[in-house]
Write a protein that binds this DNA or RNA. Structure first.
Lengths: 223, 223
DNA sequence: GTATGTTTCAAACAGACGTTTGTATTGAAC
DNA sequence: GTTCAATACAAACGTCTGTTTGAAACATAC
């Protein structure tokens, strides 16, 4: 316990509770009692609840982005002339996520849920933090997607990337519940890897769909 | 003011604030002061904050589901033999949403965001309420999707519907923020109808993608 | 005008919240 | 053994929360 495991105990408890209940719905008292540490420890070690939220993200996201950068390096080195295909880029991302050393068996699914919450819960400080710390890697991935889909307009690509992000974050964030339902309804076992294997073709097909023709939607008619 | 407009003033203020900030992050005092009514009015007219949340959903969702059932009736009547196509079913849903009489110009966008929040914020009471009140219409839509994609295995269809749901809920729930980003980055204005027009082809393409071949993902190698 | 039922209002309630404070307790350096 | 910084702890801080109360204001009927 060179540097005391209090910090890690807090991070573990916070990560799990945030994923289960969201940020505002999780109090410091829940976290510290689950972690079996004193209430004041959070403010002592992290400074504030917001800083704790950011630390939870940083603990996962920093090593993940390093792994991802390496994967992108390898990918670009392997195909020197032509840009990487869409499938290659998507799989590089997926494999990096799956390969990350996990704290426990549901590590990825927990973190996907947190990522989803970061988008949907209006945590201004968190969005700023994520953009400031990790925009470089994210931008690199966006550039790969751009090179792989030159036929799309910038606006089309922008929205389709949001759609992909949504499908991924939503599915992975509730993958435990969805897996259970499937197990009960159809008696099928599913791993996170298998979900990813089904998700990637879905995303690739959506991203490469025929560009939408502008469609006029009729105004509401009188009842 | 036959039955006092206090109830509607509260619903209007609550709807807008919930959409902007989420449920837990919106206090009754914010709502009542925005609505210019007394704090106790919420508990007098609705009974509790949770009941107010449900009332906000019911005010929109009940007429919407009626519109939707009618649209499904028309759709099934128009193609008597063959089942409706995937595009037809998706557009029936989209058009019903767009055609709904709006309280104001951003009515749909507000409600889409609320629907997204209903999924991502862990409001147990709300999920129970929605399932109890509106599961019939939802089930009918699922049956339409099943008939429109007979080539998919039950498992594939299950997961892809989750992907579609995720893309939709996620995008719509943060549509305001995403619109702003697009406005700043590319100088493009976007309406909810245009987002829907882009989303539907994406979803249709993803749902009808070639069935995924099982792919083995290699285990994490030693660093 | 008096009675009756409904709606508003100011004030208070009890509890939970994030944060701060002052004091123990620890473990190494000298 | 003393000193000193880092950590742990219990207790309290002030603020905010959803909800309740009891009296005032209002409308309707007799």
């Amino acid at each position: 316990m060179a540097q005391s495991d209090t910090v890690d105990r807090i991070l573990d408890a916070a990560e799990q509770l945030f994923a289960e209940r969201g940020f505002s719905e999780t109090s410091l008292r829940m976290i510290t009692s689950k972690a079996s540490v004193n209430l004041a420890a959070v403010n002592y070690h992290f400074g504030s609840k917001n800083a704790l939220i950011q630390a939870v993200f940083a603990r996962f996201l920093t090593p993940f982005c390093q792994t991802l950068e390496t994967a992108f390096d390898d990918l670009e080195a392997s195909c020197q002339e032509a840009p990487p295909t869409l499938d290659q880029s998507l799989w590089a991302l997926t494999e990096s996520a799956v390969r990350m050393p996990q704290r426990n068996e549901q590590g990825i699914s927990i973190f996907m849920r947190l990522l989803g919450l970061a988008y949907t819960q209006s945590q201004g400080h968190l969005r700023k933090f994520l953009e400031q710390e990790y925009s470089q890697t994210f931008g690199r991935f966006m550039a790969l997607l751009k090179d792989a889909t030159p036929q799309l307009s910038a606006v089309d690509r922008y929205w389709r990337i949001q759609f992909m992000l949504g499908a991924t974050a939503f599915t992975m964030s509730s993958s435990d519940a969805l897996r259970d339902i499937l197990q009960n309804k159809l008696g099928v076992e599913t791993t996170v890897q298998e979900i990813a294997a089904r998700l990637v073709p879905f995303l690739a097909a959506g991203l490469q769909a025929e560009a939408a023709v502008p469609i006029l939607i009729s105004k509401p008619s009188v009842a």
